[in-house]
Design a binder for these strands. Structure first.
Length: 442
DNA sequence: GCATGATCATGC
DNA sequence: GCATGATCATGC
């Protein structure tokens, strides 16, 4: 194909990409020239470069694909929501993390920034099993450069990841360590996966890649990355400090006082999401989402504790389906994805008169050893669902997690592998475990 | 008081 | 209609 773009100009590369909008590769390129397997399911980005741009980048370097323009080409899957808009199917992988060399890098000249400072992002509508040539491009391609205020958070995230490797903890990395930029798992998984060495520990680590969290990709899709949100985040002010400032006016106040300040009241004695919704109001959002938290993939959790810091309840997570979990892998499970996140504990504590007050707001993420224990409970659950779905791990079987019901009512039943119907269930973090976290770790 | 079971209000 | 975040209810 004769190139009809200027390979040194980002804008020209973008304009050329627009020719793919609404189309599939098979519709715009000469398919007779394709030497790869027609049913190829990976490599969409490379196929776009090779057959649409007619350009084969040198993938052996850490430079961007179109190095003369300084542009890295990315393709990423999106899903259509019921209202017709799109959302990210998953995180956007930027580049592999090299544990050995990252520790010697400086942010400005980092391999991440060298490669991804300016990205041309193409979105395609994800459909399971569809070969790359038949994936349809939707939305407009985005020539994306990180807004300055986001770049500060991303730099802090990058430093956090680098420091963890310096501390000899590459194997303990978690997406919950950071906000916009995550160290996501990237590798074959399973027992045969080849693990990587790290510079300051003899423990081998699973391979990981720098990625933008799905919530951040959604902000790119929505074009809201530079929107002024509920937070004033910038140089010297990270997410945590911004959060502290947001809650400052309400700290120490009773629930009744906060309700009055925000004109937001409990709907009735069964308004079970009241504290969660009140928390979102304090952050300046309506009851739906907190944009900055959404972007950073932060998981707010309200915890009510008594005078002795004992939680009133354990902590619930999304439900699972018996028929799904038996085919699932741990790292694909929603429980895994949740506990790798960074949590914001918003703690209401009973005062001497038994009245709840906003006592403390604190970030936390789950330690590696506890994530391993949660994995054990999950694997045990998966195994036992296959044998007898009515007999699953209870709270006395693990110090960390257990399984309990989570349904709308007694009629909310779903099928089991045994052919029976049982109430829906979900994973919970034990009350005593939450107590330990609240009392000793935040 | 705790473990376990049951259910609520809300948003999409 | 259902997933979610969470609290309410019960029996030992």
């Amino acid at each position: 194909m004769q190139p009809t773009y200027d390979i040194t100009s980002p804008q020209s590369l973008l304009d050329f990409a627009k020719g793919l909008s609404g189309k599939t590769l098979a519709e715009v390129i000469d398919m007779t020239a394709v030497t790869e397997n027609r049913s190829n399911k990976g490599d969409l980005g490379n196929m776009v470069e090779k057959y649409y741009y007619g350009f084969q980048p040198d993938n052996s370097t850490h430079l961007p694909d179109f190095q003369d323009a300084g542009v890295e080409l990315k393709t990423t899957g999106v899903l259509r929501k019921s209202d017709g808009s799109y959302k990210a199917k998953e995180r956007l992988v930027l580049t592999m993390i090299n544990y050995m060399s990252l520790v010697d890098e400086q942010w400005d000249s980092s391999s991440l920034m060298e490669k991804c400072r300016l990205m041309l992002i193409l979105f395609y509508l994800y459909e399971k099993g569809l070969p790359v040539f038949d994936r349809r491009f939707v939305l407009h391609p985005s020539l994306f450069e990180f807004p300055e205020e986001d770049l500060e958070i991303i730099r802090q995230d990058w430093e956090t990841i680098r420091r963890k490797i310096e501390d000899g903890k590459a194997h303990e990395l978690s997406e919950g360590d950071t906000y916009y930029l995550g160290a996501c798992r990237k590798g074959s998984g399973g027992p045969d996966e080849k693990l990587r060495e790290q510079p300051f520990s003899d423990v081998l680590a699973k391979s990981r890649a720098f990625s933008l969290k799905p919530s951040y990709v959604n902000r790119i899709i929505d074009g809201h990355t530079s929107e002024v949100g509920a937070f004033e985040v910038g140089a010297g002010i990270g997410i945590e400090e911004a959060t502290r400032r947001k809650f400052q006016p309400y700290l120490g106040k009773t629930v009744a006082e906060i309700s009055t300040m925000l004109n937001f009241h409990k709907k009735g004695k069964n308004d079970k999401s009241f504290y969660a919704n009140l928390t979102k109001r304090m952050l300046g959002a309506d009851t739906k989402t907190v944009p900055e938290f959404d972007k950073a993939g932060i998981e707010p959790k309200t915890v009510r504790v008594d005078r002795n810091w004992k939680p009133a309840e354990p902590m619930s997570f999304p439900g699972f389906k018996y028929m799904d979990i038996i085919h699932e892998d741990w790292e694909k499970s929603s429980f895994f994805k949740k506990i790798e996140k960074r949590f914001l504990f918003v703690i209401f504590r009973k005062d001497e008169y038994g009245e709840l007050r906003l006592e403390k707001v604190s970030y936390w993420n789950m330690p590696y050893a506890d994530r391993l224990e949660a994995q054990r409970v999950w694997e045990d659950t998966k195994r036992r669902v296959g044998i007898d779905a009515s007999d699953l791990p209870g709270s006395k079987e693990s110090a960390v997690a257990h399984v309990r019901p989570k349904g709308q009512d007694g009629k909310d039943l779903i099928p089991t592998p045994q052919g029976t119907s049982l109430g829906k269930k979900c994973f919970w973090l034990n009350r005593d475990y939450i107590a330990d976290v609240v009392q000793n770790h935040i």
